[in-house]
Simulated assay, not measured.
Amino acid sequence: MSRSSARRGRGQTEPLAALVAVATIGLAVGLYGGYLTGVLGETTDRTPESVAIDRVWDDVSENGVFTAIGGNDGAIRNRVRIDSLPEGKTVHVTITTVDDGEKHVIDHARFHADGTVRDPTFVGDPPADTGVATRPVPVELEPGDVRGGTLRVEVWSQ
């Protein structure tokens, strides 16, 4: 056997052993990733108001639009499910539009931590440390008249 052929044999691995090693490493990385997902998946950087605004929008919108045809008094109060709101917090929900430069409240409601719902007009203002989330939403004021609006959710402890 020549020296050049002897050198080629060094450092080579059996194909079956290489496949087993790669599969073992892949399995280990997958198990570790699954473990981390389970441990870290329960933590979140989302605030109560950012979670609440998504859930409230799901409750009050119909096909991605808030319908306020005919005034629709109490739409928020009647559509928002209590389990959509942060537990133990007071939540104030408002939908507004702007017409000719003036802001108009289309509907609003206040949900207290004890589960009661009140008209925000007759209760005090929220505290200064209130968490606030807003998002633009389409609002249908009359059949075929859809305008830009704002959904505002305020959340605080009481």
Score class of each variant (00 low, 15 high):
Asp83Ile: 03
Thr116Gly: 04
Thr94Tyr: 00
Val91Lys: 04
Val91Cys: 06
Glu49Ala: 13
Val117Trp: 03
Gly41Leu: 02
Asp83His: 07
Asp119Pro: 07
Ile25Thr: 15
Leu16Asn: 06
Thr37Gly: 13
Thr44His: 06
Leu19Met: 14
Gly11Glu: 11
Gly64Cys: 04
Phe111Cys: 03
Thr121Ser: 12
Val98His: 09
Val65Trp: 05
Tyr35Ala: 14
Ile53Leu: 13
Leu16Arg: 10
Val51Pro: 01
Ala75Gln: 05
Leu36Phe: 00
Ile76Leu: 12
Arg81Asp: 14
His108Asn: 10
Val60Ile: 15
Glu62Lys: 05
Ala109Asn: 10
Thr43Ile: 12
Gly124Tyr: 06
Tyr32Val: 12
Ile69His: 03
Val65Met: 06
Arg118Lys: 11
Arg10Trp: 10
Phe111Thr: 02
Tyr32Leu: 14
Ala109Trp: 09
Glu42Phe: 03
Val93Trp: 01
Val98Thr: 15
Glu49Gln: 11
Ile53Lys: 08
Ser2Pro: 11
Ser2Arg: 14
Asp99Glu: 14
Val80Lys: 10
Gly33Trp: 05
Gly41Asp: 04
Val29Thr: 12
Ser84His: 09
Trp57Gln: 08
Arg55Lys: 07
Arg3Leu: 15
Ala23His: 02
Val22Phe: 13
Ile76Glu: 08
Thr130Lys: 04
Gln12Ala: 11
